[in-house]
């Protein structure tokens, strides 16, 4: 790991213990989270069109289940994530998994106005959502947020920082830590979140913008996170409704993530 301070100050580093030595520069951090990006997923399914409500929900949940597996190995590659308590790791992932999947969908769709690129072999036009009750509202929110990212000319480096921020910020305002281990894990989490914000600020500083424009851009990007949380909550409710009405069979990891979420909300 890269020493953050010049070698001349090495003796003082020893007093700061591991945290100090393991602090990466924003550039290092960006490299790590860019490398952590999951591979593209192909559904490799013969999709009979036009979709029915159940065939579309089946395809969407099948894709989500595959993406969740990749998302967990992605999270483990975020520097410092595996040093958090297992309870925190689980809590963070269960709070934000749909936000992460939706941000990934927006990123894949950013250059395709009016379309949602769920996967290279599963691209939907807005109106194809009409066959699923209640999903048009969510598709329209996803398309609106995606066009905002297009307007902002979101960069890949910014996208990966936002995704890490969503993961690390997802349970900031839930239960306050009690035990010493929880306090320590939360402090690690706060430091980690600072590293991601530092990395995003660093990326924006490389875009040739004035310092005021940089500050505004940081604000615009982080404000979008609240829209993503909103769409994700709508999506979670919709999926729970589809499951309850037996429109689609939800199983395995997706069922686990959905249930912990609904039990959490209820």
């Amino acid at each position: 790991l890269h020493l953050e301070a010049p070698l001349s100050s090495l003796p003082s580093l020893r007093q700061h213990g591991r945290e100090r030595r393991s602090a990466m520069t924003p550039e290092q951090f960006i490299c790590h989270i860019m490398e952590a990006e999951p591979p593209e997923i192909y559904l490799m399914e013969d999709m009979k069109k036009p979709f029915t409500e159940s065939s579309m929900m089946m395809t969407l949940t099948h894709l989500a289940d595959k993406e969740l597996v990749l998302m967990i190995s992605w999270a483990k590659k975020i520097p410092g994530f595996v040093d958090l308590s297992l309870a925190d790791q689980i809590h963070l992932l269960k709070c934000c998994w749909l936000e992460i999947l939706m941000l990934g969908l927006m990123w894949r769709s950013v250059d395709h106005p009016g379309k949602l690129i769920f996967s290279p072999d599963f691209k939907l036009n807005r109106d194809e959502g009409l066959c699923v009750e209640g999903i048009m509202e969510i598709f329209d929110m996803l398309l609106a947020a995606t066009s905002r990212f297009r307007e902002l000319k979101l960069q890949r480096e910014e996208y990966v920082c936002l995704k890490a921020m969503i993961l690390l910020n997802s349970n900031m305002c839930t239960s306050s830590p009690e035990t010493a281990e929880e306090v320590e894990s939360r402090n690690k989490l706060l430091r980690l979140l600072d590293s991601v914000i530092d990395a995003l600020v660093w990326v924006i500083s490389k875009m040739g913008l004035s310092s005021q424009q940089q500050t505004l851009r940081l604000g615009h990007l982080t404000m979008l996170l609240s829209h993503i949380r909103h769409v994700s909550n709508k999506g979670m409710d919709h999926l729970s409704t589809m499951k309850r009405k037996n429109v689609v069979l939800v199983y395995d990891l997706l069922l686990e993530m959905l249930d912990t979420n609904t039990s959490g909300s209820s």
Partner: peptide
């Protein structure tokens, strides 16, 4: 969280 726990605790490839 059996599946989630299993994926979190297995050594990544």
């Amino acid at each position: 969280h059996t599946k989630l726990l299993q994926l979190l605790t297995t050594k990544s490839e």
